[in-house]
Design a protein around this nucleic acid. Sequence first.
DNA 1: TTGTACGCGTTATCAA
DNA 2: TTGATAACGCGTACAA
Lengths: 341, 341
Amino acid sequence: MAITIKDIAKKANVSITTVSRVLNNKTEGIGEETRKRVLDIIEELDYRPNTIARSMVTKQTNTIGLIIPDIRNPFFPELVRGVEDFANDAGYSVFLCNTDGSIKREVEALRLMKEKNVDGIVFTYSHATTKHPFQSLVHRHRIPVVLLDRGLDGEKYSGVYTDNEKAGYIATKHLIDLSHVQIGCITGPEHVQNSKDRLKGYMKALNQAGIPVDHRRIVSGDYQLEGGYRAAKALLEKGHVTAIFAFNDLMAFGVYQAAAEMGVTIPDDLSVVGFDNLKYNRLLQPKLTTIEQPTYEMGKTATELLLQQIRESKRVKTQTIYLDPSLIIRNSTKKRRTEDD
Amino acid sequence: MAITIKDIAKKANVSITTVSRVLNNKTEGIGEETRKRVLDIIEELDYRPNTIARSMVTKQTNTIGLIIPDIRNPFFPELVRGVEDFANDAGYSVFLCNTDGSIKREVEALRLMKEKNVDGIVFTYSHATTKHPFQSLVHRHRIPVVLLDRGLDGEKYSGVYTDNEKAGYIATKHLIDLSHVQIGCITGPEHVQNSKDRLKGYMKALNQAGIPVDHRRIVSGDYQLEGGYRAAKALLEKGHVTAIFAFNDLMAFGVYQAAAEMGVTIPDDLSVVGFDNLKYNRLLQPKLTTIEQPTYEMGKTATELLLQQIRESKRVKTQTIYLDPSLIIRNSTKKRRTEDD
DNA sequence: TTGTACGCGTTATCAA
DNA sequence: TTGATAACGCGTACAA
């Protein structure tokens, strides 16, 4: 059998209460002498309190859940480390759960987290619909939640996001500044909030420049390389684009592939802007102009917010934090060749 | 307050024992009628048993720990999904922990897992030294462990690996078959077992072909892009290599960068073989010849072994499983130009 | 300053 | 077929 608080108590000739006090650093009501004796014995036996038993009474597990679509999407590892590092430093462990963006699995994950009695959940919410069962679940269990990266209309829950509308705006503006007019864009899945916001920014930039929005130039992607490839093919075949704004780098990779196959040269024939500034996009030739979001930071911030919410369980007012994106100009964008050149 | 087994019992006019039986599908000793009644009420109240309380008595948490160096290394997400998917399907949750390959953090992670009472641990063991505190920890707590990807000399613990020696052999053999003689190699960190094994394979192939091993052609890397870059620069500057075998794709990426900077053309001036077959190495130009290992499968298999060990807690004999690597020939390797050409 | 005793929600043992 | 009750290991109100 594992060694328990009782064993320590017996060996130190004190009650378990006393040991418990020492364990929890209760300063008052304990003799310096006994404290030391207990501490020594704890050390000697390498005793660790049983967190399960402790949780039974404290109702806390020092554990949080992290629900994401798919860790294999290269955007997420950085985010996950942000969450993990902050959580660990604060004494929390994290359950990781992949849902592949399926509502069914999101609900399962949520239930699971509840059963595991996590103290809170960081959730990258793939479905920006208010009908998501998420709402009733969270509400019924009163479990602290912070949304991350992908949110929900309104500010009903705390959340940490990149300012996606702004990002979409500056990316598109950059292309406009390079004299591009026929600017295609490849969105993420339709139900993902950050994609919607990036699209807003895209349209805003066009409107502001007096360029009419042509819906044939807006193609749905899936945030995967393959979707970017297909979308780019469609855009390039229908012609009439001199630039493409892909809503993430992965899809921009697909654009590169499609362009290569079709004999379209980047950036001479086609300018490309991506999103995320993935570490390994430096492999691309030419180097990709892209939007950088502070991914690691986002994970950290979300976790910070969550722990805050957990500790001051009184209704801390929900906060929504938008972090600033920035445009990184490299070699995949270039001034459009005009008839005059 | 959350709803408990008591509430169900009261509402169904039965004892908690009966409810517990229904919950655990005890077939014998329960009336079909009462079972149904209880089940209905459980459904009606959407009751879920408290896993913590359950764990208190069963000594099982249905949780496993997964300890890896860094999820941001693109090799690991695939591995992690393999573990996660298998574990989840079997009703287990997984704690993820990054150690950055530091022994100190590995030990911390191990302790943490122990405190969280995980039923078992999947561990990618960065330090193939028998002095690792890991040993005493695991032994003292009698906690099932399966090593993954990176092991330990000997077969003291169950483990799932790629047959790295074979992989190193076929990669090198491929270069030799292309008439290369001056073949450099960039290893992983020195204390990592899989790097040692790959090196064995490399040497074996050279020996078999009667090519003397030149230790100036063996450079230590770190399994990171940057280390591959530095090592490649060293190899190319000292000259005398017409081919490089990088012990992972990430470092092969670094080789590409170094080559580009130094005006060395792949594959005309330099053949390159990588290792891992990362999904996004398809972005490289020319496409990378590499070793594929069944990463996802490895994660699955390791978890399968672990759960087996957990369930049949009687000393299941330790198993070591080697999965087969395969060589994927693309465009980064080419027959060496000889003086006769 | 220290200790006794109860409760957390569940399973398991034994009796009815 | 069912139920009363003792564990599991810890924190804590209350008593000493």
